[in-house]
Computed example of a mutant assay.
Amino acid sequence: MTYKIDTHYLEHSGGTKFYETVLIQEDNGPGLLIKRWGAIALKNGGGQTKYERGTHSVVAGEANKILREKKKKGYDHATKSGALHSWSGRSDVDAVMLGAMVKQHYGADTAAYVKDYFGLNAAGAVVNEEPKPREPEKPIERGETWGSW
């Protein structure tokens, strides 16, 4: 089984926010759209994540809708490297490579979700539960006198 990956990475013109879409489509199977957004400081693995599941036309339509909306709100395409972005536009990604790239890009929880969704862990059906959201990072304790110089 092979998968097609289509990614888009956008940054807001103000330089403070990012938005990422990763569309994964299985040959003759379902599609999955991973949307991730947040402060620009969280672009390497952080931010909030949401999933859209369905047929190829449904998830591709949702991705296009999001990209049009974001462009109207001041977002533009930006260069982003990484496991999934370097394979954008390819349609020959196998299951092992897909699992490894998603794990490297998003972490183990999202990789497990993607593998379950596409039935790569077992002969199971498509899953309907999203992985648990990541815990926000705890703020750094700087003390009462920090920055008072």
Rank of each mutant, 00 (worst) to 15 (best):
residue 2 T to H: 14
residue 2 T to D: 10
residue 3 Y to K: 06
residue 4 K to C: 07
residue 5 I to V: 13
residue 10 L to M: 12
residue 13 S to D: 13
residue 14 G to E: 03
residue 14 G to N: 15
residue 14 G to V: 04
residue 17 K to P: 00
residue 18 F to G: 00
residue 19 Y to S: 06
residue 20 E to Q: 14
residue 20 E to K: 02
residue 21 T to D: 12
residue 22 V to P: 01
residue 24 I to M: 13
residue 25 Q to I: 14
residue 25 Q to H: 13
residue 27 D to P: 02
residue 28 N to C: 05
residue 31 G to S: 06
residue 31 G to E: 00
residue 31 G to A: 04
residue 31 G to M: 01
residue 32 L to P: 06
residue 33 L to V: 05
residue 33 L to S: 02
residue 35 K to R: 14
residue 36 R to I: 04
residue 36 R to Q: 01
residue 37 W to F: 15
residue 38 G to I: 05
residue 39 A to G: 12
residue 42 L to P: 06
residue 42 L to A: 14
residue 42 L to M: 15
residue 42 L to G: 07
residue 43 K to P: 04
residue 44 N to L: 10
residue 45 G to S: 04
residue 46 G to K: 04
residue 47 G to Y: 03
residue 47 G to K: 03
residue 47 G to D: 00
residue 51 Y to E: 02
residue 52 E to D: 08
residue 52 E to Y: 15
residue 53 R to H: 08
residue 53 R to S: 08
residue 54 G to N: 02
residue 57 S to N: 12
residue 58 V to S: 04
residue 59 V to I: 01
residue 59 V to F: 00
residue 59 V to T: 01
residue 60 A to D: 05
residue 61 G to R: 05
residue 62 E to T: 13
residue 63 A to I: 00
residue 64 N to H: 08
residue 65 K to S: 14
residue 66 I to D: 14
residue 67 L to V: 03
residue 69 E to F: 10
residue 71 K to Q: 14
residue 72 K to P: 00
residue 72 K to V: 04
residue 73 K to E: 03
residue 73 K to N: 08
residue 74 G to Q: 08
residue 75 Y to G: 00
residue 75 Y to C: 01
residue 76 D to W: 08
residue 78 A to Y: 11
residue 82 G to I: 03
residue 82 G to W: 01
residue 83 A to R: 04
residue 83 A to G: 13
residue 84 L to G: 02
residue 86 S to Y: 05
residue 86 S to E: 14
residue 87 W to F: 08
residue 87 W to K: 10
residue 88 S to F: 00
residue 89 G to N: 02
residue 90 R to A: 10
residue 92 D to N: 14
residue 93 V to I: 15
residue 94 D to F: 08
residue 95 A to G: 03
residue 95 A to R: 13
residue 95 A to F: 05
residue 95 A to T: 07
residue 96 V to D: 12
residue 97 M to D: 06
residue 98 L to I: 11
residue 99 G to A: 12
residue 99 G to S: 15
residue 100 A to N: 13
residue 101 M to T: 11
residue 103 K to A: 04
residue 106 Y to P: 05
residue 107 G to E: 14
residue 110 T to D: 13
residue 112 A to E: 14
residue 113 Y to D: 06
residue 115 K to P: 01
residue 115 K to S: 14
residue 116 D to F: 05
residue 118 F to E: 01
residue 119 G to F: 06
residue 120 L to C: 03
residue 121 N to H: 11
residue 122 A to V: 08
residue 123 A to R: 14
residue 123 A to W: 15
residue 123 A to C: 05
residue 126 V to T: 15
residue 126 V to E: 13
residue 126 V to W: 06
residue 127 V to H: 03
residue 128 N to M: 10
residue 129 E to N: 15
residue 130 E to L: 09
residue 131 P to L: 13
residue 131 P to T: 12
residue 131 P to S: 09
residue 133 P to F: 07
residue 134 R to G: 06
residue 134 R to L: 10
residue 136 P to Q: 08
residue 136 P to H: 09
residue 137 E to C: 04
residue 138 K to Q: 15
residue 138 K to Y: 09
residue 139 P to G: 09
residue 140 I to S: 10
residue 140 I to W: 13
residue 142 R to P: 02
residue 143 G to E: 09
residue 143 G to L: 05
residue 144 E to R: 12
residue 144 E to P: 04
residue 145 T to W: 02
